[in-house]
Structure formats: structure tokens, C-alpha cells
């Protein structure tokens, strides 16, 4: 029933196992390695920047500054974190500063504002008084094979739903589930504590599940 999901390999992923090698290549001035690095993280960096600043153009500027910071700081990279975390942290620091400066910035705070209040993972009307399902979820394996679920339309919907999340939930889900960065490092990047990180991740995932359920129209 609970199927074993395999990590789907993606050409865009720079596997962490290869990081020492990647770092060596970057320090060696390997342009192809640098290009790959930019291609793999750029999109998530822009998305993360968008959780701190309101405008896409500003987010892209911050990302460009981040990459320049990476180029110039690579030799001083201390390896106290992974390279990936280091890059996302540079971005978060810059975007945070920029966001504070901007009049129209989005307030990003760990557990205040939108995304922070309690919201049930599932509509309470779907349970009876004892909290047992009365309107249970239906298996998505009935919808079709995995590939059907991963079709472009579904992925597009998922991306739009990510964008609709409150900034703090969006930041956590991008770092954790899209980028695969460990929780402890996310706390470090976003300057939030472990509990907040878990709650934000839980709410974001619950919301995306609800959206997908609705999208698949199978309840």
C-alpha cells in the first residue's frame, strides 16, 4: 500500500556525494562545473529570493549578486556547511537585507504573519466527532500510473500552488523538498528554529496535498 518511492534522478541535480569533487573543479577554474552549478540552483535561488522581496526583477538581481559573491568567495569557503547550504545562505542574507530596505517588501518572519496560525492539515468536516475519517482520501494509484501523475499539467499546478503558499512555508518547502537540504541547515539559512521549520514544512505539504487532491478531482 505504502509504496516505496525512489528518488528520481535528475540531470539538473548536482549530487551532494560529488561535492568535494565539484568544489575541487570549481577551485580549479572549471567553467563547465560552474555553469552546471548555476543551472542547478538558479531556479530555487530565485524562488527563495521571492519569499523575501516582492518583485521578480529584484529577486533576480539578488540572485545575480549572490552568484558574484560565490565567484569571489569560493576560495574562502570554510566547508563548515555544504556548498549548497553556503550558497543558499548567501542568497538568504542578501535577500533579507534587500527585503528590509524595500518599501514593498514581504515581511518574512519565522512564525508570525500568514502561514503561522494554526490551520488543520485536512478539513475537519471530513472526520467524525472522534476524529475518524468519514470522507477518507482515495488512493491516487487509481488515477493512473506514476507518469500520468507527473505529467506537465500536474507539475504546473503544483508550481502555482507553491507560489501561493505564505512566504515562510514556501521558503521551507523549496529548501527541504525541492532542494533536499537537511532541516538543520535550513534553520541556519532561514534563521528559524527546528520546531518552526517542522511546522512550516508540515503546513506547506498538507496544503499542497489538498491542492493535488482537488486537482485530481478524486474525492
Amino acid at each position: 500500500m505504502v509504496s516505496q518511492m525512489k528518488r528520481s534522478p535528475s540531470a539538473q541535480d548536482v549530487p551532494d556525494e560529488n561535492e568535494p569533487d565539484l568544489l575541487a573543479r570549481l577551485l580549479d577554474g572549471d567553467e563547465a562545473a560552474f555553469r552546471d552549478l548555476v543551472l542547478s540552483y538558479h531556479n530555487s535561488l530565485v524562488r527563495l529570493a521571492m519569499t523575501f522581496v516582492a518583485e521578480r526583477a529584484v529577486a533576480e538581481e539578488v540572485v545575480q549578486e549572490t552568484w558574484l559573491g560565490v565567484v569571489h568567495g569560493l576560495r574562502d569557503f570554510q566547508r563548515r556547511s555544504s556548498l549548497k547550504t553556503w550558497i543558499f545562505r548567501i542568497l538568504a542574507n542578501r535577500a533579507r537585507t534587500r527585503g528590509k530596505r524595500e518599501a514593498r517588501s514581504i515581511p518574512f518572519s519565522s512564525l508570525q504573519g500568514p502561514g503561522s496560525q494554526y490551520e488543520p492539515a485536512v478539513d475537519p468536516s471530513r472526520f467524525d466527532a472522534r476524529g475518524m475519517w468519514t470522507d477518507p482520501p482515495r488512493s491516487w494509484s487509481d488515477v493512473g500510473p506514476d507518469e500520468l501523475l507527473a505529467r506537465r499539467e500536474t507539475m504546473g499546478m503544483l508550481q502555482r500552488e507553491i507560489e501561493k503558499l505564505p512566504p515562510n512555508q514556501r521558503a521551507v518547502v523549496i529548501l527541504h523538498d525541492v532542494e533536499g537540504i537537511p532541516s538543520a541547515e535550513i534553520c541556519n539559512i532561514l534563521e528559524i528554529n527546528e520546531t518552526n521549520q517542522r511546522v512550516l514544512l508540515h503546513r506547506a505539504r498538507a496544503k499542497l496535498r489538498r491542492a493535488l487532491e482537488q486537482h485530481l478531482g478524486n474525492r
Binding site: M5, V178, L208
Partner: peptide, 10 residues
Amino acid sequence: VIELLRRVPK
């Protein structure tokens, strides 16, 4: 959902 998130196109 988590599996699909890992595959969000970039």
C-alpha cells in the same frame, strides 16, 4: 507530493 516536489521542473 514530496516525490513530485523533488521533480519540479527548473
